[in-house]
């Protein structure tokens, strides 16, 4: 019974979280804390923290965390399937429409207007992340500059643009350098 409820709950989360993680968080809280009582408020905060620190979409992380608590491994599978089910159907449909009608002038015009907007959205996400790294928030105060973060960012962007390094390698190198500087007592 719990498995079906898990599937249906996460189906709703998958269906209504349009636009990514920040929409998914309140939906997950509503379904798991308020509606079903699967998690307490403090467990939900734990979930939000873990999801922030680990890779992967928050909805998939939430499905795994809650599924494991409620019904073990079968719970993880049911919740995750529920979560991706709406995407599998709707986005497959979009993939078909895109393949078939991509050359239609109307759709071409729409897509070519969307592309610069998407570039801007990605750039804005990157700048926000850089501000987060340098100042710890979007508020810009010179007193709170994280110099280690700046010292890692500059060689990283240089390695990527000038030498075309593998991005995952760059990311891991930044993590290890930060660890090293921390152990040496500089951070």
């Amino acid at each position: 019974m719990n498995l079906i409820e898990l599937f249906l709950s996460f189906l709703q989360i998958g269906l209504f979280s349009i636009g990514g993680g920040y929409v998914a968080i309140p939906l997950i809280r509503y379904q798991t804390v308020i509606l079903h009582g699967w998690l307490t408020e403090s467990q939900f905060l734990d979930l939000a923290t873990i999801a922030e620190m680990t890779p992967g979409p928050i909805a998939i992380n939430g499905a795994t965390f809650v599924g494991l608590q409620v019904a073990g491994i079968p719970g993880v599978i049911c919740a995750t399937l529920g979560c991706i089910f709406p995407s599998l159907i709707l986005v497959s449909l979009l993939a078909w429409v895109y393949r078939k009608y991509r050359t239609l002038p109307l759709l071409q015009s729409i897509l070519s207007s969307l592309r610069p907007a998407v570039v801007a959205l990605i750039a804005s996400a990157g700048l926000n992340m850089l501000l987060q790294v340098i100042f710890g928030s979007r508020a810009i105060h010179l007193s709170s500059v994280n110099w280690i973060g700046v010292a890692l960012f500059i060689p990283a962007i240089f390695a990527l643009r000038r030498f075309k390094w593998n991005p995952i390698f760059v990311m891991i190198a930044c993590g290890l350098l930060s660890l090293l500087l921390g152990i040496l007592g500089l951070a």
């Binding site: 990157g126 987060q132 280690i148 973060g149 990283a156 990527l160 991005p167 990311m171 152990i183």
Partner: peptide, 27 residues
């Protein structure tokens, strides 16, 4: 995991790398 200082250091450093990667692709 949550209280480990070393894991926190690695994750914080990786944020710098991620910011660089996103900005590189946006440029």
């Amino acid at each position: 995991f949550a209280e480990n200082r070393y894991i926190a250091l690695v994750l914080k450093g990786m944020q710098s790398g991620v910011a660089a990667i996103i900005l590189d692709v946006s440029i």
